[in-house]
Nucleic acid binder design. Structure first.
Length: 258
DNA sequence: AAGCATAACAACCGCCGATCA
DNA sequence: GTGATCGGCGGTTGTTATGCT
């Protein structure tokens, strides 16, 4: 029944990594690259589970990792992204260069969760706490996914998407004098795409939020649905978002965050 | 100074989707 | 088409650090 464990736990080290273990892992990955985590410990001479090696590398040893000192800008971004995405830590981390999902998750659980909850308590909201609400939404979404049906749109502004495949994003700009969704012509969309230098940007309607729901609409290269909304188009390199720009954008206007 | 409580963070666990044979 | 494997993710637990009495 069930899957076999990723490795035998017998004879393996557990707990905090030593400097020597870190060095072994670092040396091995630098030499052979990432991947094949299951076989890595044996090859690298580590008495660790492959998963443990992967986690250690991704969260601490990988080049470019930022540790600690989460700035107020980053904090604010985390809160806003959490409001938008829920507990999708990897997605949130993807928007904070150098930060890992584990660190953000921990930071949220120890600091921001309380902060946000206090804010909710202090405010006028009498609805369920975000965590419960988000949990339910996520659960519904997973359930819907399992049943291969399109989930009903979330009641709040959270957006569910497949981030791993997301390469572009649309920012729906309320300020833009765009025609209404009903009035749009295919030509308008085509012109926009051409102006942006895009050849075949396509939108995933399951993942896209409407202008009323929120601001974001994610684009997928391999999706074959046509585009049908009024937009301002931006390239959206997840790894290179400029934090202040993002914070200052009207991306958040649709959120209920104070 | 000792003991306890709490906070912070590192690591583990189990599930799931993607991929491959 | 199917089962096995791998990698990734989010939740949870364990450990260490810090503060308080």
């Amino acid at each position: 029944m069930g899957r076999s464990p990723c490795c035998s736990k017998k004879g393996l080290n557990r707990g905090v990594w030593t400097a020597q273990e870190d060095q072994f892992l670092r040396d091995y990955v630098n030499l052979h690259g990432q991947g094949k985590w299951r076989n890595l410990p044996q090859s690298a001479g580590l008495k660790r589970c492959g998963k443990s090696c992967r986690l250690r590398w991704l969260n601490y040893l990988r080049p470019g990792i930022k540790r600690g000192n989460i700035s107020t800008d980053e904090e604010e971004l985390i809160i806003r992204l959490h409001k938008l995405l829920g507990n999708r830590w990897s997605l949130i981390a993807g928007r904070l260069p150098g930060r890992t999902d584990n660190e953000i998750k921990n930071y949220w659980n120890t600091n921001l969760c309380k902060k946000v909850q206090d804010g909710v308590m202090a405010g006028e909201s009498k609805t369920k706490t975000p965590s419960t609400q988000e949990k339910n939404l996520h659960h519904d979404h997973q359930k819907a996914k399992a049943q291969s049906i399109t989930p009903s749109p979330p009641k709040n502004n959270m957006i569910y998407t497949k981030a791993s495949k997301c390469s572009k994003v649309l920012l729906l700009d309320p300020v833009l004098p765009c025609p209404s969704m009903q009035m749009q012509s295919d030509n308008f969309i085509t012109e926009l795409l051409e102006e942006a230098g895009a050849e075949s940007l396509l939108v995933d309607h399951d993942s896209a939020a409407t202008k009323e729901d929120g601001i974001l609409a994610f684009l997928f290269d391999d999706d074959e649905k046509e585009l049908s909304t009024d937009i301002s188009l931006l390239d959206f390199d997840i790894g290179e978002i400029h934090l202040p720009d993002l914070l200052n954008s009207n991306l958040w206007d649709g959120c209920e965050l104070n």
